[in-house]
Amino acid sequence: MGVRIERVVTSGSFELDGGSWEVDNNVWIVGDDAEAVVIDAAHDASAIESALGGRRLRAILCTHSHNDHINAAAELGRRTGAPVLAHPGDEVLWRMVYPDREPDGPLADGDTLAVGGAELRVLHTPGHAPGAVCFHAPALGTVFTGDTLFSGGPGATGRSHSDFGTIIASIRDRLLVLPGETVVHTGHGDDTTIGAEAPHLDEWIARGH
């Protein structure tokens, strides 16, 4: 088979600012029969490794470094030998989870990562977190948005290291300019499309979502 997108849903806790919330996370696997990348290794390294089915794991990509998106990354990297890549802007969040371990490499705006004949382009989209990024795969007609954009609006900005005005600018300038038919694969919950979300930008701003 050619390149394809698979979702594994894992469950655990999101912890920040002294609070803890039970969450279900979307873990995305992009690749073909030979190789893959994982986007957001959350909660359960064994479940993610099983879904890989023995394929070579090229990299573990982090949309941001909140604990619920990276807490299985180090273990998955240890098991597979794959590097864990994260944006340096999230260093403070990363260290909350891994105080004694750095990411294996950085992600920067404009970087491209090839897997299974497809290309993922890194878009720096701060707001939910300072180092939040999205991964745009033009040939697959999709963008992986982590917690930057959901079905129904922007990701949360009410906790430390987040900012509403910044996330709105990121969504407006980096995501809503993508083709309307682009499928949005989110960090939690259901898919949406750029075209479905774009008309609601002014509503989000008005309600300070």
Score class of each variant (00 low, 15 high):
residue 73 A to R: 00
residue 164 F to K: 02
residue 68 D to L: 08
residue 98 Y to I: 04
residue 200 H to P: 14
residue 24 D to Y: 08
residue 12 G to N: 06
residue 93 L to A: 05
residue 13 S to E: 13
residue 153 G to V: 09
residue 138 P to T: 00
residue 19 G to N: 07
residue 131 G to A: 05
residue 22 E to Q: 10
residue 205 I to G: 15
residue 209 H to V: 11
residue 9 V to S: 04
residue 52 L to W: 01
residue 24 D to K: 12
residue 148 T to C: 12
residue 84 V to G: 03
residue 151 S to P: 08
residue 131 G to W: 01
residue 113 L to Q: 11
residue 121 R to G: 09
residue 111 D to L: 14
residue 22 E to K: 07
residue 205 I to W: 08
residue 70 I to H: 01
residue 85 L to Q: 05
residue 188 H to N: 11
residue 141 G to L: 13
residue 81 G to T: 05
residue 102 E to H: 13
residue 124 H to I: 12
residue 194 I to E: 04
residue 45 A to N: 00
residue 79 R to P: 02
residue 198 A to N: 10
residue 154 P to H: 03
residue 144 F to I: 01
residue 187 G to P: 02
residue 178 L to K: 00
residue 146 G to K: 00
residue 169 A to M: 12
residue 55 R to N: 07
residue 146 G to E: 01
residue 65 S to N: 08
residue 118 A to N: 10
residue 152 G to P: 12
residue 82 A to F: 05
residue 198 A to K: 15
residue 160 S to F: 09
residue 63 T to I: 02
residue 192 T to L: 05
residue 19 G to Y: 04
residue 186 T to G: 09
residue 135 F to M: 03
residue 198 A to R: 15
residue 181 E to F: 13
residue 19 G to D: 03
residue 154 P to Q: 07
residue 160 S to L: 14
residue 188 H to P: 08
residue 141 G to W: 11
residue 29 I to E: 03
residue 133 V to I: 09
residue 68 D to Y: 12
residue 168 I to A: 14
residue 73 A to P: 00
residue 101 R to Y: 07
residue 155 G to S: 10
residue 105 G to M: 11
residue 42 A to W: 03
residue 25 N to G: 00
residue 111 D to E: 11
residue 132 A to T: 01
residue 71 N to M: 02
residue 33 D to E: 14
residue 27 V to E: 02
residue 104 D to L: 14
residue 110 G to W: 05
residue 135 F to T: 01
residue 172 R to M: 08
